[in-house]
């Protein structure tokens, strides 16, 4: 078994027993992923921070009910919590947050990224178009492509079957590509910054 996964299971067990250090370690390991998950979706850094906090508080509250399962990482459990917090947020802000828009500070951050050697003009576009996808499309793409969860774990986090997760992922990529036809993911496409 993966030593890293073993280490995490150990930390979870200690935290469940009431060890504060283990709890801190878990936070250190996951806070960036959880923040990323939220920041990407809500656009505003403050809201993402709030969501991260509520996610971890919820994790603290329901940690006693967590039971490790073979082949399913702790992170998939954590992401399922994060996703529920996010859906909650969508529900509360359904009327006043334009999800398909990129906030100004986000935009400047993207522009400054041009100095990055890995910069690609499609990157901000991907981010912008992602917002137009259904919630479950966004989640499956984030969990599998970004956070490196396998399909089974992502399916567990989203409370769907593995088969459904696979189909969902395929459809999400197809949809995202269709949303940006001018930025085809082909060699022939010319770059237009």
């Amino acid at each position: 078994m993966d030593p890293e996964k073993n280490k995490i299971l150990e930390l979870v067990a200690h935290a469940q027993a009431g060890d504060e250090f283990s709890m801190g370690e878990l936070f250190e390991r996951y806070h960036q992923a959880i923040y990323r998950f939220h920041a990407y979706r809500v656009g505003s850094a403050e809201d993402a921070e709030d969501l991260t906090q509520t996610t971890f508080l919820e994790m603290v509250r329901s940690l006693p009910q967590y039971h490790p399962r073979a082949g399913i990482s702790f992170s998939s459990w954590l992401f399922s919590i994060a996703r529920y917090r996010l859906i909650d947020y969508y529900r509360r802000h359904a009327n006043n947050i334009p999800f398909d828009k990129v906030s100004p500070d986000e935009y400047t951050r993207m522009q400054s990224d041009t100095t990055n050697p890995d910069y690609d003009s499609r990157i901000p576009m991907i981010r912008r178009q992602m917002r137009q996808l259904p919630e479950n499309y966004q989640t499956i793409l984030q969990l599998t492509l970004l956070e490196g969860l396998n399909l089974r774990e992502a399916a567990h986090a989203m409370k769907i079957s593995s088969l459904h997760a696979r189909v969902l992922k395929h459809r999400a990529i197809k949809k995202l590509k269709s949303l940006m036809p001018e930025y085809s993911f082909n060699y022939e496409q010319t770059d237009q910054p």
């Binding site: 920041a39 990224d113 990055n116 910069y119 690609d120 991907i126 993911f185 060699y187």
Partner: peptide, 18 residues
């Protein structure tokens, strides 16, 4: 990059840090 690098592109679009 190649279309197979979609995941990489994706990752770069998600570089928010707390």
């Amino acid at each position: 990059k190649k279309p197979t690098d979609f995941g990489v592109l994706f990752k770069h679009s998600l570089d928010d840090q707390l």
